[in-house]
Simulated assay, not measured.
Amino acid sequence: MSRKQSPNPPHRTTHFGFREVEEAEKAPLVRNVFTNVAARYDLMNDLMSGGIHRLWKDEMVSWLRPRPGWQVIDVAGGTGDIAFRIRERMEGQGQVMVCDLTEDMVRVGRDRAIDSGRLDGLQWICGDAQRLPFPDRSFDAYTIAFGLRNVTRIEDALSEARRVLKPGGRFLCLEFSQVVLPVLDRFYDLYSFQLLPRLGQVVARDRDSYRYLVESIRRFPPQADLAARMADAGLEQPRWRNLSGGIAAIHSAWRL
């Protein structure tokens, strides 16, 4: 009698913008997007937000209140905007590890640091938010800005955040979120889907990457849903602050 073979495990899918793709496909697709936009990423952020993203990042770091001597990991830290702010608040004491999936983004950030004379207290590494190459309980704080929506499995990234935080460590996520003002949401949809891809085509010569970025925002969990996922991952006391009517939001939690 022949042994009955077990069925093949089902393929798991996820979203890449509005497309459904195999989970294994998403990270290479995301890496390709940010490889394409790395050289003009900071310029596009200024143009797309009118510079408001700088205020959002300032608010995030102010809420974090980094202390001298901390060890901080900034995941999806790309070109260094959050890391530079944290390092300045630590008064020259402590380390910020910038970890990003895309080598070109890391290279741009490292070059920015060198060009601006930021030579101490910053380290740069390519790594996946779902499989961070660091031991348990390594960091006093974990930050991620505009990166969580690009991971394949948000729950895995949140679990990894908890794993690498020390007891008492702080988690902060800045991300585009769900607009809470009725008039603003209609204007924001028009701006996002009509103007941003065109701006990407003109400035970055890449319409498709910016269409993906707009679509990825719409697929990201709303504020309360993300807070619940944080709690499920073992991050405690989750809360959030809306920015600019919910266009963006900062989520906070602790590893206790």
Rank of each mutant, 00 (worst) to 15 (best):
Q5H: 09
P7L: 14
P7S: 15
P10Q: 10
P10M: 12
H11T: 14
R12F: 09
E22D: 09
A24W: 07
P28S: 10
V30D: 05
V30W: 01
R31I: 04
V33G: 01
F34Q: 07
A39Q: 12
A39Y: 01
Y41W: 02
D46Q: 06
D46C: 07
S49W: 06
R54V: 09
S62M: 12
L64W: 02
R65M: 14
P66T: 11
R67L: 14
W70T: 05
Q71P: 02
G77M: 11
T79M: 03
A83F: 13
R89Q: 13
E91R: 15
E91G: 03
G94F: 08
Q95R: 13
V96H: 14
L101I: 08
M105C: 07
R110M: 10
A113H: 04
A113T: 04
I114C: 08
R118L: 14
W124H: 06
C126F: 01
C126I: 11
D128E: 13
D128H: 06
A129D: 05
F134Q: 10
P135L: 11
D136M: 10
D140C: 07
I144K: 08
I144Y: 07
F146R: 03
F146E: 02
L148H: 00
V151S: 02
E155W: 07
L158I: 07
S159H: 12
E160I: 06
K166P: 06
F176E: 01
F176K: 01
F176R: 02
V183P: 01
V183A: 14
L184V: 09
F187H: 02
F187A: 14
Q194H: 08
P197H: 09
L199Y: 03
V203N: 05
R205M: 04
D206N: 15
R218D: 04
F220L: 03
P221Y: 05
L226D: 13
A227Q: 13
M230G: 10
D232A: 13
L235V: 01
E236Q: 09
N242S: 08
I247V: 12
A249R: 00
A249M: 03
A249G: 06
H251P: 08
S252W: 12
A253K: 11
